[in-house]
């Protein structure tokens, strides 16, 4: 009984040395941490060497929210407390204002920590950012350097062109972008 009233805390250290103390239940949203905790390294400060503090803050925010939903839904006995639509809206709000470099770090972090829900949010955000854009727009957005030589680029274009590219419908659409 005493264990349930006294919340177990876990400490996480980001790559830039900041230590975060969170409830165990929050840390356990991340499958990777859950596995570690179950292997009983709960008292140690867990180093998350590939995630910087600002990103870890965001990740912890996400995990806290997940814990809140699951606990509130179990007490009110209503598992559908947050409808699909609300969940979507919440996810969108959570990712709002996330710029491309933060997004990339979030993707890496959620992939490493194995947080499926957050990974999905990140991936969906990235898909929406890429969709309908030209390669150069994407490079600018994600700060990617074009490492193709013009010859290589031409070669791919010849070998793997989108077959419908010359259709007037597509031409019209891309010129109106």
């Amino acid at each position: 009984m005493s264990e349930s009233t006294e919340k177990k805390m876990v400490r996480l250290r980001s790559s830039d040395g900041e230590v975060f103390e969170v409830e165990e239940s929050v840390a356990k949203v991340a499958k990777t941490l859950q596995d570690m905790l179950e292997e009983d390294c709960a008292d140690a400060v867990i180093p998350i060497t590939c995630v910087r503090a600002p990103i870890l803050t965001k990740v912890i925010d996400y995990c806290k929210d997940q814990v809140m939903i699951s606990s509130s839904s179990s007490t009110t006995n209503n598992p559908n407390e947050r409808t699909e639509q609300e969940r979507k809206a919440w996810g969108q709000k959570f990712m709002e204002g996330v710029d491309s470099s933060t997004l990339c770090e979030l993707l890496v972090a959620s992939n490493f920590l194995n947080i499926e829900g957050l990974l999905n949010l990140g991936v969906d955000k990235m898909v929406s950012m890429i969709q309908g854009k030209y390669p150069q727009e994407i490079r600018d957005m994600f700060n990617v350097v074009n490492d193709f030589t013009p010859e290589e680029e031409e070669e791919i274009r010849n070998q793997n062109a989108w077959a419908f590219e010359r259709d007037p419908y597509y031409k019209k659409r891309s010129s109106s972008k």
């Binding site: 990974l119 991936v123 969906d124 990235m126 898909v127 890429i130 969709q131 309908g132 854009k133 030209y134 390669p135 994407i138 490079r139 994600f142 990617v144 350097v145 074009n146 490492d147 193709f148 680029e153 791919i156 274009r157 793997n160 062109a161 989108w162 419908f164 590219e165």
Partner: peptide, 21 residues
Amino acid sequence: VNVFSRLPDEDRWKSAMFVCK
């Protein structure tokens, strides 16, 4: 790969493929 799996074919073939190696 996860991102591209949710991207329409058209975007994969017309844009994503040309961004970088």
